[in-house]
Computed example of a mutant assay.
Amino acid sequence: MTTEDRVLLLVEDDAAFARTLGRSFERRGYQVLLAENVDDASALLVDHSPGYAVVDLKLKGNSSGLACVQMLHEHDEEMLIVVLTGFASINTAVEAIKLGACQYLAKPSNTDDIEAAFEHVAGAADLELSSRTTSVKTLEWEHIHTVLAETDFNISEAARRLGMHRRTLARKLEKQRVK
């Protein structure tokens, strides 16, 4: 695979993280295109045809990583898209895959993890299933993230829908946040 074939679109609103991850992929022979939101990514597709994309789930403003995945998949169904998030939930993982992502990774993930995700597109039927039942804490966490995703990660609106104070929700998110 030549460098021309290895064009990667990185949609990440954290500039420092985007630069670091971008440099790491460049050292591996990728041409990296940086975008902060869906509109920036769409504009880059006018002149470029990336075969790979890494999309942050939660982008600044009203920009959704899921909307970006959908837009990228509609642009090129063959593009390998990995969603990367610090706010992982089953609900958003399922939606990302339905919208066209090939993999969904929780932060912290590094370049090795992301490259492995690009290479592991097909599912594994022999995956070992856990015999553990889901805990109440996990169910609460999943419900919180479902509501957060429905409100485009607006904490005040999510807290209102969950029937809790905004500060309480913020504290729960800080305790559980995957960094």
Rank of each mutant, 00 (worst) to 15 (best):
V46P: 01
L173M: 15
G61S: 07
G100Y: 05
L139K: 09
E4Y: 12
L33E: 07
L44K: 09
A106R: 00
D56M: 13
T20F: 12
M164Y: 01
L162K: 03
R19Y: 09
S49T: 15
L84R: 00
G22A: 07
A18C: 10
L9G: 05
G22L: 09
R19F: 14
A170N: 08
D112M: 03
V83H: 06
F87V: 07
T168E: 07
D113V: 01
D13N: 13
V121F: 03
E119C: 06
V32Q: 13
V54F: 01
D5C: 04
D76V: 06
V54N: 00
L169M: 04
E150R: 04
R166F: 01
D112P: 11
Q70T: 13
E95P: 00
A125S: 10
D76K: 06
D47T: 13
K172W: 01
R132K: 14
R28V: 00
F17T: 05
K175V: 08
K137N: 13
M79E: 04
H143Q: 10
L148K: 01
Y52F: 15
D14Y: 13
E150T: 08
A35F: 06
S89P: 00
T168I: 09
L44S: 11
H165R: 12
D56V: 07
T3E: 15
F118S: 03
A124Q: 11
A43H: 10
L21Y: 12
E74S: 15
H48L: 03
V121D: 06
D39I: 12
T85H: 01
C102V: 14
H120Q: 13
V38M: 11
A125K: 07
A53P: 06
D14M: 04
L148D: 02
L44Q: 12
P50Q: 11
A122S: 10
R27H: 13
G100T: 14
G61W: 14
L72Q: 08
D126P: 01
V46M: 07
R23A: 08
G61N: 10
A158N: 03
R166I: 01
I90K: 10
L162A: 05
S135R: 06
A16H: 05
P50C: 10
L8F: 09
V32E: 07
V38L: 14
S64V: 12
H73I: 05
D14Q: 09
A67P: 00
R27N: 05
S131C: 06
L148S: 00
A35L: 01
H48W: 04
L99S: 09
I90W: 09
D5Y: 11
A15C: 03
I114L: 02
N62K: 15
L162W: 05
G65H: 12
G86M: 06
F17D: 07
A53Q: 08
E174P: 00
L33H: 07
H143G: 02
K175R: 15
A125I: 06
V69L: 07
K107H: 06
T133W: 08
L8D: 11
V178G: 02
N62M: 14
C102E: 09
A15S: 10
S109V: 11
T146R: 05
D152K: 08
W141D: 13
L59A: 08
K137W: 03
A67F: 11
D13H: 11
D40E: 13
T134P: 01
G29C: 12
H75F: 15
S63L: 07
G163N: 05
A67I: 10
L105E: 01
I144H: 07
A53N: 04
S135G: 03
K172Y: 02
V147N: 03
